[in-house]
Simulated scan of single mutants.
Amino acid sequence: MPHSDLLPSLLYKINENQLALEAAILELSNWVEARGSADVADNVRGALDTIDKNEEVIKLTLAVLMTPE
């Protein structure tokens, strides 16, 4: 298998890891907020918005890369 065929799979797995980290960090921000640090939780959620904003483009690009020619 050529190395170029591995790239889409690698990117897919990296994206999967990113989404898992996003979910874990969101859980932590909820925990922090429940303990009275709403400002910190809001800052964390603001940073996580970037992942959400980019997710659709990443999914579409991966779909194109994984489609056989």
Rank of each mutant, 00 (worst) to 15 (best):
A23T: 14
V40S: 12
L11K: 14
L26D: 15
L28A: 09
P2C: 01
A41K: 03
M1E: 08
L19D: 08
T67E: 10
A38P: 00
P68H: 03
D39R: 13
L21A: 12
M66A: 15
L21P: 00
A47V: 03
I51C: 07
L65Y: 14
D52C: 04
E22P: 00
D39Q: 10
L6G: 13
H3L: 11
L48I: 03
V44Q: 03
M66D: 14
S29G: 05
A34C: 06
D42W: 02
A20F: 10
W31K: 06
L65V: 02
R35Q: 10
L60R: 15
A47Y: 11
W31G: 02
V57H: 09
A47Q: 11
K53A: 11
A20L: 11
P68L: 01
T61E: 11
V40F: 09
S37D: 12
T50Q: 13
D52I: 02
K13V: 15
K53Y: 05
N15V: 02
I14V: 13
V64M: 08
I14A: 08
N43H: 07
L62T: 04
R45A: 06
D52L: 04
I25N: 01
A63L: 09
S9H: 12
N15Q: 12
E33H: 00
M66K: 11
N30M: 05
T67I: 03
N17E: 09
D39S: 07
D49I: 03
L60C: 05
D49T: 11
E33P: 00
L65E: 01
A24E: 13
E27M: 03
V64I: 14
I14L: 13
L65D: 00
E56N: 14
A38H: 04
L62V: 07
E33G: 00
A38D: 05
L10W: 10
V57K: 15
E55Q: 11
L7W: 05
E27T: 02
H3F: 06
N17H: 11
L60P: 01
L28I: 06
L6F: 07
